[in-house]
């Protein structure tokens, strides 16, 4: 099994940390992982994206042009990455702020109202965890227990009290992701 993912959105949406949590979860279930961010001028104030690979085997290129799954969180990223999903692959997006919805017929497309659900929970910071939950439902590759284990290992102890909130957000995302008829 090899899963090649691109997560793309605005800086500040938690794109990079969502990727990191995913990668850490992969380690917790004894898989190989890589996390390659876009860095440099494009990161400063603009779009942010990260390529995450989870595999049972040694990972070759950490830099990819086509992906099994694209998680898309703004219009610029939709313009850039809708075409980068492998035929038969998966696209998950938050419709908030999207003006041109994906149109491909050869991939599976899912929506998650991440921004809206986060606002309803009264905490916009857990937006990325809701989206992560959506991904985990669509692609059950990393197990929830391993995500929690990964959080425990990667977060400083003073933040551990926030883990239940993150777990709730993941469950909310899992519940609310919806496939778009295609």
């Amino acid at each position: 099994m090899t899963e090649e993912i691109i997560i793309a959105g605005f800086g500040g949406q938690g794109v990079l940390s969502m990727g990191k949590i995913l990668a850490y979860s992969g380690i917790m279930q004894e898989q190989e992982v890589s996390w390659m961010p876009s860095y440099g001028p494009e990161m400063r104030g603009g779009t942010a994206n990260v390529t995450v690979i989870i595999s049972d085997e040694r990972i070759s290129s950490p830099i990819l042009t086509i992906f099994d799954t694209a998680i898309i969180l703004n219009q610029q990223s939709m313009d850039k990455f809708e075409k980068s999903v492998k035929p038969g692959g998966t696209l998950i997006y938050d419709p908030n702020g999207i003006t041109h919805h994906p149109e491909r017929k050869d991939i599976r497309i899912f929506q998650i109202e991440g921004a809206q659900l986060a606002a309803e929970m009264g905490n916009t910071k857990i937006f990325n965890m809701i989206v992560l939950g959506a991904y985990m439902n669509v692609k059950p590759i990393v197990k929830l227990e391993n995500v929690i284990k990964g959080l425990k290992k990667s977060l400083p102890e003073r933040y551990h009290k926030l883990i239940p909130l993150n777990e709730d957000a993941i469950r909310l995302g899992m519940k609310n992701v919806a496939e778009i008829a295609n």
Binding site: I27, E32, V33, S34, M36, P37, Y39, I59, P62, I63
Partner: peptide
Amino acid sequence: DGVIGQMMEK
């Protein structure tokens, strides 16, 4: 190089 420096792996 920048890739090896910036990427995260196990």
